[in-house]
Amino acid sequence: MAVLTATTAGTDAGAEPARAAGARRRVAWLDAARGVAIVAMVLYHGSFDLLFFGYVDWPVTSHPLWRAFAAGIASTFLFLVGVSLVAAHGNGIRWRPFLKRLAWVVAGAAAVTIGTAFAMPMPIYFGILHAIALFSVLALPFVRAPVALTAAVAAVVFVLPHVWRDALFYAPWAYPFGLAPHMPVTFDYEPIFPWFAVTLLGVVAGRLVRLVPGEKPVGPVWRRIAVLGRWSFPIYLLHQPVLFGALMGIAMLTRP
């Protein structure tokens, strides 16, 4: 969200074109895609919470289709990070909004780690928000790099963990790399290898697809979904505490 600072009493009218210009910079289908991803994430986390409290016996954490659903959601978010970087910084890095957004994501990631350390048996140390923060930094040099180079690096990042791992990466400092022989037991883990490849593919797509800012989503349903996409970050931070807290309260009131 853009922050507008009024320097005189008469700047409200002048702020409207600035707001309109900020709105025109948004790419409608990116907002809609984030909206779809956030709806899917709420559905998945809601299903997980129902399982956690014993209200359903759905194999949310084990069945291949459920695992594919979760991976698809994470992949969508990480892919859109790459596309969004091109949309926002393809003509030059806008450092102030980039660093501001990065600070919010880092703070959100820290809140997830602290919250899950208290509420869950297995804290999340490098989940989707941690990945988005780190991958945003790592992908920034590729926004204007040759597309072929970006695609080649994405291929290496994706293939490497399937052909080589080492016990060295069990060390805590190496946790974000994802190259240990066995994956840690955690509820959310998107390490650099292979997940950064998805963000790089998003950068490639952003370079190859014409990104047109200012167009509005077609139809009332897509407009509402796009609104969710514009607010995906606070929705992500708040939906799980709300769902988890509500089910915890119900369980405390209805069970011995």
Rank of each mutant, 00 (worst) to 15 (best):
I38S: 09
A151C: 03
G92R: 03
A133V: 05
G22F: 15
L51Y: 15
R165T: 14
R144Y: 07
V153S: 01
F244D: 04
W231M: 08
T116G: 12
P217C: 04
H63Y: 09
A117S: 15
N91F: 08
A154D: 11
P241W: 01
M120D: 11
P234T: 01
G214Q: 05
K216C: 07
F233R: 06
V60H: 05
F118K: 10
F135T: 09
W222V: 13
L238S: 08
T7Y: 14
Y189H: 07
D57S: 11
L211M: 07
K100Q: 10
L80P: 09
T116W: 07
A205P: 03
A20Q: 11
T150M: 04
V204M: 03
A171F: 00
L208M: 11
P191T: 06
I225E: 03
A28W: 02
R96T: 13
A117Y: 10
A110H: 05
W231L: 13
L168M: 07
N91Y: 11
R94T: 08
A152V: 12
V86P: 02
Y44N: 07
R96F: 09
A151V: 01
P234E: 04
I225F: 00
P213W: 07
T116N: 11
S75V: 05
Y170N: 13
V39Y: 06
V218A: 14
L30W: 01
L129Q: 04
F193P: 05
F69I: 06
G22P: 03
V156C: 10
A226M: 10
M252L: 15
V204F: 01
R255F: 10
